[in-house]
Structure formats: C-alpha cells, structure tokens
Simulated scan of single mutants.
Amino acid sequence: MKLLSVKPGEEVIDALTRRAAEEGITNGAIVSLIGAVDECAISNMPADDASTDIVNEYRQPFELSGTGEIRDGKVHVHVVLGREGDVALAGHLHRARVETFFVHAYTLPLQQG
C-alpha cells in the first residue's frame, strides 16, 4: 500500500496524479481517501440523462472521505463531503483545494503482468 499525500496549497486531483506518477502507479485502487478541503467542485447526473454531469462548486471547508481508482495514470475519485450544519454532499470530485489541513489517499497499485 502507498500513501499519497496532498498538502496545504495543493489541488487534490493534480497532486494525487503527480504523486502516483512519482511512485510509478499507473493503475490501482484508492481504497481510502480522508482529510479536509477548503473548496471543491463535485458532480452528479440529472435523473433523465446519465451521460451528463451537473457540476456544483463550493467555497467553504469540508471534511472529506472517499474511494477511487487510478487508470492509465488518471485519478478518478468519488467523495462524501461533510459541511457545517451536519450536511453531507456526495459525488464525483472534479477538483478540491487543500489550504488548512491535508488529504491522504491510501492506494493499492495493481500488479503488472
């Protein structure tokens, strides 16, 4: 298992993509994602069109947990985000910015061959 960390001042998807490449991870599972972000963009699908994304942006702190995958070097993550008022949001993570805390991705690389 490899730990990929996102530090304050970094964008989550970009940082995870870079760190996976540095570790030589082209394909693998992100079995656990945990941390907090200060802003983000997530998407869900409209009820009548599963091929379309509705992207919503949020500029406030969130607790974050999730899972995902790395396929051909591309990071794909689904998250649950908790915000003030005990409200949870969920969806596909397009981007998120860490400023205050961190995000840790516990990753299992797929064996080649």
Rank of each mutant, 00 (worst) to 15 (best):
D48F: 03
V80G: 12
P61G: 01
I42K: 00
H92C: 04
E23T: 03
S32N: 08
G9R: 11
P61M: 08
E10Q: 15
R95G: 03
I70W: 00
S65R: 10
L93F: 10
E99P: 00
G73K: 11
H92G: 01
F62S: 07
A36L: 09
A96I: 11
L108T: 12
R83H: 05
P109L: 06
V98F: 10
T26Y: 11
V98K: 08
G82Y: 07
V103N: 03
S65A: 12
G35F: 04
E23Q: 14
Y106L: 14
G68Y: 01
A90W: 03
R97A: 11
I54Q: 02
H92P: 00
A21Q: 14
V55T: 11
A36P: 07
Q111C: 01
E23K: 08
Q111V: 15
D53F: 03
C40P: 11
I70D: 03
A21Y: 09
S32Q: 10
V75M: 00
A21G: 08
L108I: 14
E99G: 01
L33I: 02
V55H: 06
H92F: 05
G28T: 00
R83C: 06
E22P: 04
D48C: 02
H76L: 04
N56L: 13
A50S: 14
V37H: 06
N44R: 15
A90Q: 09
D53N: 06
E84K: 04
T52W: 05
R19T: 00
T107Q: 10
Y106F: 15
M1V: 11
V87C: 04
V75S: 10
T52L: 00
L93K: 10
L16Q: 06
Q111S: 14
V79R: 03
T17Q: 07
Q60T: 14
T107P: 09
T67A: 10
G66T: 04
R18V: 15
G68D: 00
V37N: 05
S5W: 03
E10I: 13
M45W: 08
P46V: 00
A36S: 15
E22G: 08
L93R: 08
E99T: 14
R95S: 09
L3N: 12
L3K: 13
E63I: 14
L33F: 01
S65L: 03
R59I: 14
L108F: 12
E10K: 09
H94D: 13
A96L: 05
E63C: 06
D49A: 09
G82P: 10
D38V: 03
L108D: 02
H94M: 05
G91L: 04
Q112K: 07
A50C: 09
V79G: 00
D53E: 14
I30Q: 00
P8Y: 13
N27Q: 10
T26A: 09
Y58W: 15
T67Y: 13
I42T: 08
T52Q: 07
H104V: 13
D72M: 13
P46N: 09
N27A: 11
E63T: 15
T67C: 12
E11D: 13
L4E: 13
P46C: 01
E69Y: 00
P8S: 13
L81W: 13
V79E: 01
E23F: 04
A29Y: 01
V87K: 15
G73I: 01
E99K: 14
